[in-house]
């Protein structure tokens, strides 16, 4: 296997609220290898996006704070860098594609200007030079008539095209890591597949790593090499996509699978939701955070926090129970 690109160790990102510290990311550790596609899944509020924003140090402070941990990217701990050094990492070595293509482009600047902006910032390109590269990038993301479209404004683009432009913007400086935070949530299904294929092939061309944050298990199954399942600010199961789907070991992952409709299912079959609500991140239960909603729970679960333990290969789970029994 190739070398490590990103190594996250024991990351804690908390937000201060009136109810106390909200533990959005509570001790997350994982590695990302060069050229790999990592999927991060979990329901809303489980800390997926906060993990991504922590990597770029874009957590609004106050109220958010990265309390402890290490984010080692290309041999440097990003949490130790000065603000100026961090500016040179963002958009240059790590770029991010946001969730909302409709609002993530500035309405008063042309698309070409914006796609070229990382080049202006990090490569010292002139406005004209940046525009030329931007047109190339737009062509790469298969925007038709890119020369004409580069002088268009975002409102003249459709949602899918805007997301293509955002991807083009992310690729400009040939970053080592591209973080896509629910990149296809606002788009329709056919466009989703096109965009994900495109992203995957473009990152492969750059031999960059891709981190896809999503709550769509189908996306993860198809595109991710490896999957982290997150719950209440922690990774509860991690492994290859195959491990997660075919050899599920965590009750929460099982619950997620059960709540997705399957094409071979009887039309009358009911979806099985996970009962209850995600825990209040400011007041996590003692023991396993999933224990109040877990159908497998035993007494030990309410007392002790299960550590991530290896079940074979790179497949790890954080659960006291063996769900296969």
């Amino acid at each position: 296997m190739s070398e490590k690109l990103l190594e996250i160790r024991d990351l804690h990102t908390y937000f201060w609220t009136e109810n106390g510290w909200v533990k959005a990311v509570n001790g997350v550790s994982f590695d990302l290898w060069k050229g790999e596609t990592l999927g991060i899944v979990g329901e809303s509020g489980c800390g997926k996006s906060v993990t991504a924003l922590s990597i770029l140090r874009l957590i609004p402070n106050p109220p958010g704070r990265i309390l402890k941990g290490e984010i080692i990217f290309e041999g440097r701990d990003l949490l130790q860098l000065s603000d100026e050094e961090m500016l040179r990492v963002r958009g240059n070595r790590i770029s991010m594609v946001f969730q909302e293509p409709m609002t993530s482009l500035n309405p008063v600047l042309t698309v070409g200007r914006q796609v070229g902006e990382p080049l202006e910032l990090h490569r010292g390109a002139s406005i004209k030079g940046a525009l030329r590269v931007a047109i190339e990038l737009l062509k790469k993301t298969r925007i038709p008539a890119a020369e004409n479209r580069a002088t268009d404004y975002p409102h003249q683009f459709s949602g899918g095209m805007r997301q293509r432009a955002m991807i083009a913007m992310g690729l400009g400086c040939e970053p080592g890591l591209i973080i896509a935070d629910e990149p296809t949530t606002a788009l329709d299904v056919t466009v989703q597949a096109q965009l994900l294929d495109l992203m995957k092939s473009l990152t492969r061309d750059l031999s960059a790593s891709l981190m896809i944050i999503t709550h769509n298990l189908g996306v993860v199954a198809r595109y991710a090499d490896r999957v982290n399942v997150m719950y209440a600010g922690k990774i509860v199961e991690t492994g290859t996509a195959h491990d997660i789907y075919e050899d599920t070991r965590h009750p929460y992952t099982l619950g997620l699978m059960a709540s997705v409709p399957k094409i071979d299912q009887d039309v009358k079959a009911k979806l099985v939701p996970i009962e209850g609500q995600p825990p209040d991140l400011a007041h996590l239960p003692e023991g396993c955070s999933f224990y109040p909603r877990c159908t497998f729970a035993v007494e030990k679960c309410s007392k002790e926090v299960p550590p991530l333990e290896t079940v074979g290969g790179i497949h790890q789970k954080a659960c006291w129970i063996d769900v296969r029994k």
């Binding site: 874009l58 958009g91 993530s104």
Partner: peptide
């Protein structure tokens, strides 16, 4: 609070920019 401002932050634009 618009996403494009956050996005410009994420590509490394300074506060001034």
């Amino acid at each position: 609070e618009e996403i494009y401002v956050h996005a410009s932050n994420a590509i490394g634009a300074s506060s001034f920019r």
